[in-house]
Nucleic acid binder design. Structure first.
Lengths: 99, 99
DNA sequence: TTTTGACTTGTCAATATTTGTCTAATTTAA
DNA sequence: TTAAATTAGACAAATATTGACAAGTCAAAA
């Protein structure tokens, strides 16, 4: 489930129109349409706006949004598994960093 | 081990000067210095050039390079583990995609 | 069939970011 | 101290991103 598909699903469940949500976000309907279809990438600020408009937790939406971006970076790499393993290691190091 | 630290180590092992490697890459010494110190991000093209100049496999260098970028995206996220798990799922889906 | 409303697409100027180089430090090694 | 290597800062040029507008498609209502 991509970010776009996810927010579209949420919007439809709430029976909201593109124009209603877009208006709450202060953006053009066309732009929100593109974000939902994945032809445009939302800015972080817009993800926050969406969380408000759709009454979902910001971190939940950000999870989908960040995952999307990372998947996009990795989708053409042959050794994405190896890369992810390394990322996990490095993150672990970071969080164990004292001070 | 970050990308910058890694290529610096490789360069020093080979006893090459910044200016020698930078010249092979057709970039300014100052830029390579910044890349090694992590204050500038190499372009993918430059990673390829580095692989040649340092006689290392491109995919090995790209692994460090991509991991760096992803770590940077995640370093301020509280739920990075969750995000990575989602990424792994999505990647798995992608590779299982028939046609 | 025409009209209407919701959504989508293509294009473009404005804005923002990235890039690489230059010059001027600073550090290092002799 | 000197000379070479490396680093920092500032800048213009190149590139990328952004959001809006206008025009398009599509389905359902009239």
């Amino acid at each position: 489930m991509t970010f776009g598909n996810y927010i579209r699903k949420l919007r439809e469940e709430k029976q909201l129109l593109l124009r209603e949500v877009a208006s709450q976000m202060n953006i053009d309907t066309a732009l929100l349409s593109k974000i939902e279809r994945g032809t445009r990438i939302a800015r972080k600020e817009q993800v926050e706006d969406l969380a408000k408009a759709l009454n979902k937790s910001e971190s939940e939406l950000l999870k989908f949004w960040m995952a999307d971006k990372i998947v996009n970076m990795l989708k053409d790499e042959s050794n994405s598994t190896e890369i992810l393993k390394k990322v996990e290691e490095e993150i672990k190091n970071l969080t164990n960093q004292k001070k």
